[in-house]
């Protein structure tokens, strides 16, 4: 579904991605793991058009999207849940969800209902302004907003960031449900144990390179991964 070939991203003199290649197949959850500064977020920014790669290629459903602009990605079928959630703080929950359907023509009330079924808390809060929601609720809203654009591929940037463990649990359960309903998911996560339990496959990034990729179950038992990323969380 999504293929990245030798993508290089530089910020001025600093190279953030040294030619990474990976792929995401239809219907799976792929986790991108790595420490701070490994290049995970840059990868997602590149995939959502916020940074064009200096060289390399991004292919989505057979179409070259390397130089596509950020605002064109939703209409292609790629939804992006940005790092730090970035909901519209002064709009109500309802309006935030409506904004998610901005690029669509026609009625979207069915999808609104579906979102309220997936996230019952948002229905309760639908007249509240986004800025007043808790972190977890905002994350759900951000995911809901991205889903309103009917993406076939959903990019999630650090969905667990700054959230309580119990809420992270809920969010990951919902990500699983999203995959089950037919949307492919690429998730960037620091919480490696949590992400690998959910994902089908994973890639491990280090200093702007993908060091290895494997099925999630293999990664969970891999000695290198356990040592570096699961050192503390493996026991929990």
């Amino acid at each position: 579904m999504l293929e990245v070939h030798d993508a290089v991203v530089r910020y001025g003199a600093i190279t953030a991605l040294h030619g990474i290649s990976f792929e995401v197949a239809q219907g799976e959850i792929v986790a991108l793991l790595g420490a701070n500064g490994a290049g995970k977020t840059t990868t997602l920014r590149m995939l959502s058009g916020l940074h064009s790669p200096q060289s390399g290629q991004i292919i989505f459903e057979g179409q070259d999207v390397t130089t596509t602009k950020a605002h064109q990605f939703t209409s292609l079928g790629i939804g992006h849940v940005p790092e730090g959630r970035r909901i519209f703080p002064q709009m109500t929950v309802e309006e935030n969800l409506e904004m998610g359907a901005f690029g669509r023509r026609g009625s979207y009330s069915d999808d609104m209902e579906r979102m309220y079924q997936t996230f019952p808390i948002l229905k309760e809060r639908r007249k509240l302004i986004g800025g007043n929601l808790s972190g977890g609720e905002q994350q759900m809203l951000a995911i809901g907003r991205a889903l309103m654009g009917q993406p076939r591929l959903l990019l999630l940037d650090e969905p667990s960031m700054g959230l309580a463990p119990m809420i992270v649990e809920t969010i990951f359960r919902i990500i699983g449900e999203i995959r089950d309903s037919g949307t492919t998911v690429l998730v960037v996560e620091q919480n490696a144990a949590q992400a690998l339990r959910l994902a089908d496959r994973g890639y491990v990034m280090e200093n702007g390179r993908i060091v290895f990729g494997d099925s999630a179950s293999n990664l969970l038992t891999d000695a290198r991964v356990r040592a570096v990323y699961l050192g503390e969380s493996a026991d929990s």
């Binding site: 950020a70 605002h71 939703t74 940005p82 519209f88 002064q90 998610g100 907003r145 991205a146």
Partner: peptide, 23 residues
């Protein structure tokens, strides 16, 4: 629609782009 796009851009330009608005 235009008015809502303006509101979105004013509040968060990156988020506006992520929902498909050309700022």
């Amino acid at each position: 629609r235009v008015g809502r796009a303006w509101t979105a851009i004013r509040e968060d330009e990156v988020a506006a782009e992520s929902v498909g608005i050309n700022p």
